[in-house]
Design a protein around this nucleic acid. Sequence first.
DNA 1: CGAATATTACGACGGACATCGTAATAGAAG
DNA 2: CTTCTATTACGATGTCCGTCGTAATATTCG
Lengths: 108, 108
Amino acid sequence: MDAPTLLPQPDLDTVHVETVLRALADPVRLRIVRRLTEVEESTCTALDVGVKVSTVSHHMGILRESGLVSTRIDGTARPSRLRGEELRRRFPGLLDSVVGAAPARPAT
Amino acid sequence: MDAPTLLPQPDLDTVHVETVLRALADPVRLRIVRRLTEVEESTCTALDVGVKVSTVSHHMGILRESGLVSTRIDGTARPSRLRGEELRRRFPGLLDSVVGAAPARPAT
DNA sequence: CGAATATTACGACGGACATCGTAATAGAAG
DNA sequence: CTTCTATTACGATGTCCGTCGTAATATTCG
């Protein structure tokens, strides 16, 4: 009964595009994803995304269930990282186009 | 004062990625977008996406405001088409990766 | 063991939104 | 002009979801 070292996460082949899009559509979650392209791994408390830690945990759960991040169990900490390789194989071009999208020019 | 031949639509440079993702995240809207990659142009009534016409119109309005489709005024009809070229310039790789995404394998 | 810390579960609250039916508007057709 | 058709505006409704505070759980440390 070796304890799992990873939190349960879906097989990317079973994940719908809509699910991934929905996960990426939230500003906070997109900021988390972008952050994870820079730091490679981070815990909820370490991320500074402007919302309470319980909210960050909530979003991280959604990102995990949507197949975007993988969360490792390390004592009381749960460092997460992007599932970059797998995502690029399942949805070629999606992640990079979203993360690398040019910022919007101020409207009106 | 020549009447505008196009319904008002945003400059794509002012559109945020989150907005586009949110627009694409809805199943009905994604079906509309996919349909518009096949027929090039269509009205709300012509589209058969499984919801009432008033709902289709609602979704089409969101797609327009999000910068995804362009709607032309043709009598009482309002045929819409994908802003493919502009979208590919604004968000390289996004549209094609979403539209061309492989379907999800039945989970569990 | 007891204290401190990281994370999540839970409950609540407010706002956003998908859906529909109906009415209003506008052009086309007779 | 009258009728028909296409589209949208509007109002209503139920659901989903982002946010937070607090409590519970688990692990590390002294």
